[in-house]
Computed example of a mutant assay.
Amino acid sequence: MGKNKQELYSVTEWSDVITLTVSERHPVLTVSPSWLSPGASVTLNCDVEHPSAGWSFYWYKVIKQEINRLYKYELLPGSISGTAQDSYIIHGQTHTAGYVCRAGRGDPEYHTDHSQPKFVWSADLNSAASLTVSPNRVQHFIYDSVTLNCSGNSSQWRVMTFTQHGYLRKCGDLGIMTESTCNLRWFQDTVSWCESESGQFSNGINITASYTDVILLSPVHPVNEGDSVALGCKLRTGNFNSTVAFYKNGKLIQNDDREKLNIPAVSKSDEGFYKCDYSGHESPESWMSVKGSRSSLSVSLITGLVSGMSLILLLSLLLCCWHKKSKGDLFIYFYFIY
């Protein structure tokens, strides 16, 4: 006897609803230091959202493509198969450069998205291009007219900016770009630099947009040891009619009626964060960088060469005297004065 179609299968009630969430892991790249001393080592760290064993990390340098002017990522040496460590050290970094990372695990390997680019900036002017700012200072009032200009060994440059919120933008998005010059119409705290079509980078400069009534006048580029430097304090409107205070790393170093802090011969110990205060109105802080002068490097090199030659001559003389002494011909005593 056959069965009815309704008896061939049965249907249960619906289960409870559950939500399945697939989370993409976006690694976060950090760089240290973000501002270079020439030839310094740079450490990259790649952090995933939920770190656990089994991750491999891949490290890339940001390269600008000439055709579409977009960026591409080029694997760094030793990173083709990934690294077990979530950090990567770059030795001898001398110029501005951008980096990204990503992570992967499993078999077959699942890869995260690339991190947001992070840049390491060099303030050194001895590069393929140089970026200058007018007015020539770090801090500017929010409605100031500011001009950035690129110059170098390439016919075409563009000014790039990295904002305080971590966005990479063309300078033309914040103003008007004419050939290699960018006139900012509105801006925020940024680091700016020049890029050529062949992917060369210039020095980087800090630009601070201030909403305060007072700004600090400080050099944009690093100053050489031995140079004289004058830091100033500037009001948005009006003139100073009482004392002006200057601070270094939060410590008061001058408090009188002078509008400038004069440093006649800068040394490495003068490097630090500076700000000024007038009638309770403080400027933002700005970092003043100091680098060794070429003259001091030359003196050190010459001193080293002279010392080395003196040591060689002294050893030769000692060897000669020892040889003569062994034959009973000559005795010489040396007195070393410390």
Results as ranks from 00 to 15, higher is better:
Tyr167Thr: 08
Thr181Val: 15
His165Met: 06
Met160Pro: 00
Thr181Leu: 07
Thr181Ala: 07
Val159Tyr: 07
Ser145Met: 05
Val146Glu: 03
Asp173Ala: 15
Arg158Val: 07
Asn183Leu: 13
Leu184Gly: 07
Glu179Cys: 01
Thr147Met: 10
Arg169Ile: 13
Gln164Leu: 04
Asp173His: 11
Lys170Thr: 03
Gly172Tyr: 10
Ser151Met: 07
Ile176Asn: 13
Thr161Ala: 15
Arg169Asn: 13
Ser145Gln: 10
Thr178Gln: 15
Val159Leu: 07
Val146Asp: 05
Tyr167Ser: 07
Leu148Ile: 05
Val146Trp: 01
Gln164Ile: 04
Cys182Pro: 10
Leu174Gln: 13
Val146Ser: 04
Thr161Gln: 13
Asn183Lys: 14
Gln156Leu: 12
Thr161Ser: 10
Val159Cys: 06
Glu179Thr: 13
Gly172Asn: 14
Tyr167Leu: 08
Val159Gln: 11
Met160Thr: 11
Thr161Asn: 07
Gly172Thr: 14
Met160Glu: 08
Gly175Ala: 09
Phe162Tyr: 14
Leu174Glu: 08
Leu168His: 02
Ser154Ile: 00
Phe187Pro: 04
Ser180Ile: 03
Arg185Lys: 08
Cys182His: 08
Asn149Trp: 00
Ser151Thr: 12
Ser151Ile: 05
Ser154Phe: 15
Ser155His: 10
Tyr167His: 10
Trp186Arg: 12
Ser151Gln: 12
Gly152Trp: 09
Ser145Arg: 09
Gln156Phe: 06
Gln188His: 02
Trp157Gly: 01
Leu148His: 04
Thr178Val: 15
Trp157Glu: 00
Arg158Thr: 12
Gly175Thr: 07
Phe187Cys: 06
Cys182Tyr: 06
Leu174Gly: 00
Thr181Pro: 01
Met177Arg: 11
His165Ile: 09
Asn183Met: 11
Val159Pro: 06
Cys171Asn: 06
Leu168Lys: 01
Arg185Ala: 09
Gly166Ala: 02
Trp186His: 12
Ser154Pro: 00
Gly152Pro: 08
Ser154Ala: 14
Asn183Val: 14
Tyr167Met: 05
Ser155Met: 05
Thr161Ile: 15
Trp186Asp: 10
Leu174Tyr: 14
Tyr167Pro: 00
Asn149Val: 07
